[in-house]
Design a protein around this nucleic acid. Structure first.
Lengths: 136, 136
DNA sequence: ATTAAATTTGCAACACTGTTGCAAGTAAGA
DNA sequence: TCTTACTTGCAACAGTGTTGCAAATTTAAT
């Protein structure tokens, strides 16, 4: 439940946070600031939306999804992330036709040989192509 | 040679293009617009730099390096890319300390099982951590 | 070397994304 | 209920990237 989720991450329960978190819970794709703003522009200030996304990110409710376009997209964390640790090393798929970005939480990224001397914190794999819906 | 490279990709030989392409040839890390602008701000207009980067991208001289920060970085293509085809499915490493991004052209990205129904155009792996220089 | 056509450059202006400071408003615990 | 700490909205700003247009430059053809 959404309220519990906020409390668990030590965030106060407010209208903006409930609405935006609900948005992510409903969506099966990663959402950008502008996606959110489209829905709530006459309800909440854009700065508030930015700040909400940032606190969700910081507290481990959301993770950032990389993208060649430059705009930041976010998706719900599936594991127990918190402000100290993020576990979001999974595969992302971006459709070149509809531009939607999906997370594949179940597909682990294989270990890459050849980076032995580097200390590795995280790996993110972005696959681009055509999603199932856009093939039809 | 730089002039040959421009001609090969059907780009006219101009001062901006020579200078910027040379910059990339010298550098072992990916460069952003602002990296370039720092060097040439009193010589070339920022719009011209943006346009130069875009034509290099389009003609297959450079590829875009993904990054969670949102700013676009570019690096030289190693294979024979052109305006129709890009072969830049390799590993990128970003150092969390110095923020430099390196390409590992030699490390191929393993095939990911579980995306069978998707048409895949490209895969980019971004590994973050601490580079060798920053460990010392 | 001259010329003509096409491309490139610089400038001004603009749009979008994201951040900061501050005063007013709200949530949560005593 | 009251107090404290956090959150929100507003205004202003900074950075990144794009577009239109006139002037300059490259290129290829004479």
């Amino acid at each position: 439940m959404i309220e519990t989720l906020l409390k668990k991450h030590s965030l106060r329960i407010t209208k903006v946070r409930m609405s935006i978190l609900d948005c992510f819970a409903q969506s099966d794709t990663a959402l950008s600031h502008s996606d959110i703003e489209l829905q709530f522009s006459n309800e909440f200030d854009r700065v508030t939306i930015y700040r909400t996304l940032n606190s969700f990110l910081e507290k481990g409710l959301l993770h950032k999804v990389p993208d060649d376009s430059g705009i930041a997209r976010f998706a719900l964390c599936q594991h127990d992330c918190n402000e100290h640790q993020h576990y979001d090393n999974h595969v992302h798929f971006k459709c070149d036709k509809c531009s939607k970005v999906q997370c594949f939480h179940d597909i682990a990224i294989p270990t890459i040989p050849g980076l032995n001397e580097y200390i590795i914190h995280s790996s993110q794999l972005l696959v681009q192509g055509v999603c199932i819906e856009c093939q039809e």
